[in-house]
């Protein structure tokens, strides 16, 4: 792989990521769902692991992570389509939040998605988009509880296609 974002990390973090105990999927078939519709007819939602939330919503729990550094808040939040910049907050201790607080589109590009809809490149846009806080060393609760609930919520909104981006 030519893309090497390790260069953006402090050495301790980069070295730890190289030997991290990732969930071993080597013996499993990679999940695969063919697109059910043409992209131009598909309703699209964004999902981001960047820890964004609405100012009136509950922040991701960073205080507990400060006390228990191997714990990450496994819950998720909803961001409504058309939310204004001043109504966005960020709670994530593993990247500098100020850029997203200047323009949340650098983590959750709702404006570009609106462009795609206006230009007829997609068929629809979800009324809500999902966010979670991506620091999850122990993934159990996230995998067993949050992820299925997020998938269910997206299906309830008749979403055909999700664009998922990391923090």
């Amino acid at each position: 792989m030519a893309v090497n974002s390790f260069k953006f990390m402090p050495r301790t973090l980069a070295e730890s990521m190289k030997v991290w105990p990732y969930v071993d999927t080597s013996g499993e078939e990679i999940p695969w769902t063919p697109p059910g519709k043409a992209i131009q007819e598909s309703k699209v939602a964004l999902v981001s692991s960047g820890g964004l939330y609405c100012k009136d919503d509950r922040p991701f729990d960073l205080d507990r992570e400060r006390k228990e550094p191997l714990w990450g808040d496994p819950s998720f939040r909803e961001i409504p389509r058309g939310i204004s910049q001043q109504d966005i907050r960020a709670a994530h201790l593993h990247y500098e939040n100020s850029h997203a607080l200047e323009d949340y589109n650098c983590m959750l590009p709702l404006a570009a998605l609106e462009d795609m809809l206006a230009e007829g490149r997609i068929g629809g846009m979800s009324e809500y988009h999902l966010t979670f806080m991506g620091y999850q060393p122990r993934l159990g609760t996230f995998v067993r509880e949050s992820a299925p609930r997020m998938a269910e919520r997206l299906m309830d909104m008749d979403v055909d296609l999700v664009l998922l981006s990391s923090g």
């Binding site: 953006f8 990521m17 190289k18 969930v23 999927t25 994530h92 990247y95 990391s166």
Partner: peptide, 28 residues
Amino acid sequence: SLTNMPFITEKIGVPRAVAVEFPFGMIW
């Protein structure tokens, strides 16, 4: 998926991804 860490994306078996060499917090 959009990733800035294809090293990890490859390991965990993500079905479809594009990758950019951008820092954390500004992946778009």
